[in-house]
């Protein structure tokens, strides 16, 4: 596949910030997709290596991921991927149709982004590799925190969109 610039116009920071993550997580989380998906995504970086190399690395990453990741983390990744898709759709719609009720756009988009961020946090906290970083936080606690944070987020968003 030819290198594809997945980067949208730099009109808004969240987009450019979210996009690479988008690429990465789709690469790492959608089990049904073929391994050449991450190839397309990672070539967003300066294309100094040939396609074969990238394909190899992609396969390695994918295998690594499938082997090492726990079921629960995969669930998280699926949810994150879902959120990315929702956010991407909203952003696309905003670019196409304009952001007329600006508060609605903001709350819709930031609800998704916020949820994504919280889920990513949960993923980090529950990742056994990060156990050392989060000594004091058990998984139950992490999940409870996650729910707490999400509730606040949803409240704000719904309030903002009225």
């Amino acid at each position: 596949m030819p290198p594809k610039k997945a980067q949208p116009s730099p009109s808004a920071i969240p987009a450019s910030a979210a996009k690479p993550t988008h690429a990465i997580s789709t690469a790492s989380s959608q089990p049904t997709k073929t391994p050449n998906k991450p190839v397309a995504a990672t070539t967003a970086t300066p294309s100094i290596r040939n396609a074969q190399d990238i394909q190899q690395i992609g396969t390695a990453v994918w295998n690594n991921y499938v082997e090492k990741t726990a079921q629960r983390t995969k669930l998280l990744d699926a949810f994150m991927a879902f959120l990315i898709v929702v956010a991407g759709l909203q952003f696309l719609y905003c670019l196409l149709a304009g952001n007329y009720p600006f508060n609605a756009f903001l709350s819709g988009f930031s609800a998704t982004i916020g949820q994504f961020v919280l889920t990513a946090s949960l993923r980090m906290q529950t990742n056994p590799e990060n156990q050392a970083e989060f000594e004091t936080i058990s998984h139950e606690r992490a999940f409870a925190d996650f729910v707490f944070g999400s509730m606040i987020l949803h409240f704000f968003c719904v309030n903002f969109i009225n």
Binding site: S107, F109, A111, T112, N162
Partner: peptide, 20 residues
């Protein structure tokens, strides 16, 4: 917002997120 048609995609966005 729910009176303005243009806001519907984003309302859907929020509720999709919440449902998710």
């Amino acid at each position: 917002s729910f009176v303005i048609m243009a806001a519907y995609p984003w309302i859907t966005g929020i509720w999709t997120t919440v449902a998710g």
